[in-house]
Design a protein around this nucleic acid. Structure first.
Length: 424
RNA sequence: GGUGAGGUGGCUGAGUGGUCGAAAGCAGCGCUUUGCUAAAGCGCCGUACCCCAAAAGGGUACCGAGGGUUCGAAUCCCUCCCUCACCGCCA
């Protein structure tokens, strides 16, 4: 959520920054400003009347205790009361209108973000490793079928298309990868492991800004207003919602494994082939809560922490800096990590590392007390460390050998319990 | 799911219709005093918003949340949420 004071004081700046996203959101600003003015006017009027009522009511109390008549005063206060009811309604209507407009307005891109209107404006910042030299590599769907690592047909029988059922060595590999990543982030990168609920309240979804915009993409449980988490970002970032943290306790660094549930009624095609784009997938997520001064340094180190996963697994990848037009709703700056999948001859996005600045913190009243004792909004960040099915696909495509087996990276072997995945 | 108890400021804890935004204590901050650590005395010490160009200052709201009663609600009534205890059910 944007700061209404910033909008009030620098409307042109806000409009200009929003316009770089290309979503037309800058058009909302005039509306926000005029509602804000109405709101304040109404509030001032209301508060004047409330003040009057408080004064007169005290007088009534005083008169009564002196056994004097207070009927005239009571009549006047009754009348004021009616006006207050009316003004209160108007004030809260303005307040709600302003809030819902602000909830639907995306974050301002950071000044360092390249301007662009779609993914073609993104730029590759760096790459790590090299594409392995294959002549005609199989893709993960073929490999998975041959080695019985997952069963998409039977998953569809259970739950419909867009679900994965890992089987045998595939299920074990999934589990090994999760453990490997969590151990890495807790032991070497200083994150605290969290195992959060997979169902969260609506307020949490608003807090991290999945709602109100993306409600259609979320799985919700209507009767008790809970939502299946689309990413562990939601429970992790909301852990300290409505709290005022001590600056000495920052940054907070959390890592969690959760399944992620997304409707994403995307069209079928290459993008949706195999296990690349599904309604439920596993993910290890990294979240940081920090101060405005440190958040951009933390973004760099968060990205590096996620990259380490791929480095230790020996997988080639590239880091992409998203342009303004490709930035997600709440993000001020984002790096995507794309791992090379030789069987598909393409890079797959396995992590999106973002700094939300105070955008989410405002929505969830997440603050810290600075060294002056002043309450300020935290900055929040998150990134996958990393998403599993795509990592799984890149890993088996990269590790495939001529005899049809899959060679596993050294670092993963203690977790998997073998150096290769073979037939049967 | 059922029954009972309860939710007050960073914490403990008073307050059952009117000068209560809320006693007191603890913690915290500042000053003073005493031969250091310590102790004592005094003062300050919630949040959000509104008015004001700003500061100073003034005002409003907030005692789990939302409604209601009343001239006036932390205090009375209703609904909901949460915590604790016991019972039922259950991996």
């Amino acid at each position: 959520m944007l700061d209404i004071r910033l909008i009030r004081e620098k409307p042109d700046f806000v409009r200009e920054r929003l316009a770089t996203r290309g979503g037309g959101d800058e058009a909302k600003i005039d509306n926000v400003i005029s509602i804000d003015a109405e709101r304040r006017k109404t509030e001032t009027e209301l508060q004047g009347l409330q003040s009057e009522r408080n004064r007169l009511s005290k007088e009534i109390g005083a008169k009564r205790s002196r056994k004097e008549s207070s009927e005239e005063l009571e009549a006047r206060v009754r009348q004021i009361g009616e006006q207050i009811v009316d003004l209160t309604q108007r004030a809260s209507a303005f307040d709600e209108a302003q809030r819902s407009l602000l909830l639907e307005t995306p974050n301002l891109p950071h000044e360092s973000v390249p301007i662009g209107k779609d993914p073609s404006g993104n730029r590759v910042l760096r790459t790590w490793g090299e594409k392995p030299p294959f002549t005609d590599p199989a893709d993960h769907v073929a490999l998975g079928a041959k080695l019985k690592l997952f069963d998409l047909e039977r998953a569809a029988k259970l739950s419909g298309s867009g679900f994965i059922c890992f089987t045998g060595a595939g299920a074990k590999l999934e589990r090994a990868l999760i453990n490997f990543m969590i151990d890495l982030h807790t032991r070497e990168h200083g994150y605290i492991e969290i195992s959060p609920p997979f169902l969260v309240r609506r307020d949490c979804m608003i807090g991290t800004s999945q709602l109100p915009k993306l409600e259609a993409d979320m799985y919700g449980l209507e009767e008790n207003q809970l939502f299946l988490v689309p990413t562990a970002e939601v429970p992790l970032t909301n852990l300290h919602r409505d709290e005022i943290l001590n600056v000495a306790d920052l940054p907070k660094k959390f890592v969690a494994y959760t399944p992620c549930f997304r409707r994403e009624a995307g069209a079928a095609g290459r993008e949706t082939r195999g296990i690349i784009r599904v309604h439920q997938f596993d993910k290890v997520e990294l979240v940081k809560i920090t101060t405005p001064e440190k958040s951009y340094d933390e973004l760099e180190s968060l990205t590096a922490d996620a990259e380490r996963v791929l480095q230790l697994l020996g997988l080639h990848y590239q880091i992409v800096e998203l342009c303004t037009g490709d930035l997600s709703f709440g993000s001020a700056k984002t790096y995507d990590i794309e791992v090379w999948a030789p069987g598909q001859n393409t890079y797959l996005e396995v992590s999106s590392c973002s700094n939300f600045e105070d955008f989410q913190a405002r929505r969830m009243q997440l603050r810290y007390k600075d060294s002056q004792g002043k309450n300020r909004f935290c900055h929040t960040l998150n990134g996958s460390g990393v998403a599993l099915p795509r990592l799984f696909a890149a890993l088996i495509e990269t590790g495939q050998q001529k005899d049809g087996s899959i060679r596993l990276p050294e670092k993963l072997r203690p977790y998997f319990g073998a150096s290769e995945i073979n037939h049967e």
